[in-house]
């Protein structure tokens, strides 16, 4: 559903040019969960920002369902590391924020947002304020805010990195089930290799700057392994980890 062709990005700065991405091409199928890993500073977030339309690529093209992308489109939902909840809005009003910005806050869409809150155990908190929620719950609200606009493609930019380890494991399990249930096509950028293995169907490994695709790894677990936590306990998990670790070629 998403096709990225020969994408490149060169940043202009006072002290010269920085080539962040070079000739990146890949495709994402409907309902697929893609993990993008790479050394820090390799341009992972740049890639997401370009797909989200926040940045203009220096070269190359993007297509969603064969329509060429330029700028911010309605089809893409983007979730960042910080939950960015507005403290002066109730949970429900935070969830409706995206619809409000897009001027698509119809009764039907509002109902859908409430339905999501209900499905994911946050309905009873809808009139509370963000400061009254735990970090994991706040991130879940941020996810629902993104899903409320019914994106066709979801981008997660280190979306769980700000949370403590336990919360993170629990939340990734949770989010994984939400996304599979909604059959959401997802691209997740993370520096956390285990996290990407535990959630992705396919992992794209980027090289050092300028980032190119070093390899694409299909992640396959036995049928009975369903959740990210179960994946972490499977023997194949370690093998994948070692493969990716070798590819990343990390030096201090």
């Amino acid at each position: 559903m998403l096709r990225v062709e020969h994408l490149s990005k060169i940043y202009q700065a006072h002290n010269g040019e920085v080539e962040a991405l070079s000739d990146i091409s890949f495709e994402v199928q409907e309902g697929e969960y893609i993990g993008v890993v790479g050394p820090s500073g390799s341009g992972k977030s740049t890639l997401l920002s370009i797909i989200a339309g926040l940045l203009q690529p220096s070269g190359g093209e993007l297509y969603i369902n064969e329509t060429k992308l330029s700028g911010i489109t309605e089809d893409i939902g983007y979730m960042l590391q910080s939950d960015s909840l507005l403290e002066w809005r109730t949970i429900l009003k935070n969830v409706l924020f995206g619809l409000e910005i897009r001027k698509t806050l119809t009764p039907e869409n509002a109902e859908y947002a409430e339905h999501l809150l209900n499905n994911y155990g946050l309905y009873e908190f809808k009139d509370k304020y963000p400061s009254q929620l735990s970090g994991g719950m706040r991130q879940r609200v941020a996810l629902i805010r993104t899903l409320a606009i019914r994106p066709k493609l979801l981008l997660l930019d280190e979306a769980f990195s700000a949370l403590d380890y336990q919360t993170r494991l629990a939340l990734t399990d949770d989010v994984y089930q939400i996304l599979k249930r909604e059959n959401m096509t997802t691209i997740m950028v993370t520096h956390d290799i285990p996290e990407s293995i535990s959630m992705s169907d396919r992992i794209i490994v980027l090289s050092n700057r300028p980032a190119t695709i070093k390899r694409t790894l299909k992640i396959e677990f036995p049928e009975e392994v369903k959740t990210p936590l179960q994946r972490r306990n499977n023997p194949k998990f370690g093998q994948y980890f070692n493969e990716i670790w070798r590819d990343l070629d990390v030096h201090l």
Binding site: G77, L80, S82, S84, L86, F97, G98, I101
Partner: peptide, 26 residues
């Protein structure tokens, strides 16, 4: 004003005036 929050609003396609009235001013 928290640039992450502004970025969040931008990803929804917020205009400059929406960013001001809904985020920067409050």
């Amino acid at each position: 004003t928290d640039s992450e929050i502004i970025k969040m609003a931008t990803t929804f396609g917020a205009s400059r005036s929406q960013i001001f009235t809904k985020i920067v001013f409050p």
